[in-house]
Design a protein around this nucleic acid. Structure first.
Lengths: 224, 224
DNA sequence: GTCACGAATGAACGGATATTCATTCTTGGT
DNA sequence: ACCAAGAATGAATATCCGTTCATTCGTGAC
């Protein structure tokens, strides 16, 4: 292995260059994301990305080897955001069931803020290569972790009916995604707040053990 | 309104022509579907469709005005199949809860048989025009009808915990789709049969009213 | 001031592909 | 046997778009 730390630290201007390079990368990814969320990756040319970012086409190839790498960057960026935002958004609730609801609500909130981006990940993942797909899967599973942990703890304390954690947590993740995937179905029938409330109530009304249900009366909406 | 019935009936050869035309249309749609389920619509050229169908490129334009119409035909065909298959697959169970499970299992079965086609509908719907998207939504809602009906009846008879039918049925539809959407997550962890069984058990263990749970012990797998 | 080097440009290239249409082939009626 | 009329062909066209690269620009070091 080559020693490079000393060399890098010895050049102070290197940091500034790196910073500008990072900013450009972000700028390009943001421009690409804006366009691709509207039209999909195939509907966006490199020229269009360049125009949107206010740079020339050639410059993109200084930061991304080819279009597929750019697309991959956009999708991974979206998922990376979610993998950061969701754990952070989970309120430090003490009660496991309440933490479960908080995690689910937070997940829905991030989906709502990035509705088009979530759609993009479903539409474009298949255009990536094996490596890209592996990264996506890893990130997505990681976004479900707060939910999984909360469910597991609630189960361990006997607060829930016996369920398969792997399945239950992924079902909840998918239901959160459905606010984006099936927005055309849900949105005309309810607001976002009603969606989260109803889904939470459904989850609680069904999954919480009857012996403990009374403790969460405040989270169960009025019965139908 | 113009009378055209008489004219049509007066020409016997017209029927044969229509039949051949329909067969060609189906042949082209099937070829396109086979290819697009693998590579998405953008990954398939009109030439490739023609080769797969064993005809020339030009002929496709006799049956479809352009590529978008062909893509729309493929997607609507897939959804139409499902809208036919699923109601047909619902076993004529007498008990509403059992009919609910049967409808869900049938839905999952159709999804499993058409895994790539389901993915295609999620990936390519946005390429359609307004009219096409409206048709898709109608068809999809129709596929959920057997589930919705069974749930409503189970609710009316007090067999379920109080839930919002619109939400619960669409959640189940989405979970069935998830066998295709999240195949990479579920498939390494369980077989298709285990997936259906676990999801059914989860749905029953949580949604069935405690007073009636004993009646469905055979459908609830061994508790975790 | 000027030199060197990375950053940035954008015209040009090459490949792919949707669409057209002049032409040939099939078929069903007489 | 012959003749429309529709069915089918596939080479040619026009367009679009990813990628390259010769060239210019900007900036920090000396």
């Amino acid at each position: 292995m080559v020693l490079k730390g000393a060399e890098e630290l010895a050049v102070p201007a290197e940091a500034a260059r790196q910073a500008r390079s990072d900013a450009r990368t972000r700028q390009l990814l943001e421009a690409a994301a804006r366009l691709m969320e509207r039209n999909g990756s195939h509907g966006v040319s490199m020229q269009a990305v360049a125009d949107e970012a206010g740079v020339s086409v050639g410059l993109i190839y200084r930061y991304f080897a080819n279009k597929q790498e750019l697309v991959q960057g956009v999708i991974l960026g979206v998922l990376d955001d979610m993998a950061r935002l969701i754990p952070a958004a989970v309120a430090p609730e003490a009660d496991p069931v309440r933490r479960m609801v908080a995690a689910f609500s937070a997940y829905c909130g991030v989906v709502d803020d990035n509705r088009e981006a979530v759609l993009l990940t479903y539409r474009e993942s298949h255009t990536l290569d094996e490596e890209g797909r592996r990264l996506i899967k890893d990130l997505e599973v990681r976004t479900a972790q707060p939910l999984t942990d909360a469910i597991q703890e609630a189960l361990d304390r006997g607060l829930l009916m016996p369920v398969d954690t792997r399945i239950f947590s992924y079902d909840l993740l998918l239901i959160a995604h459905s606010w984006s995937l099936k927005h055309w179905y849900f949105a005309p029938r309810m607001t976002f707040e009603e969606f989260v409330e109803s889904q939470s109530a459904l989850m609680l009304a069904t999954a919480v053990h009857p012996d403990h249900r009374a403790a969460y009366a405040d989270l169960l909406g009025a019965p139908a």
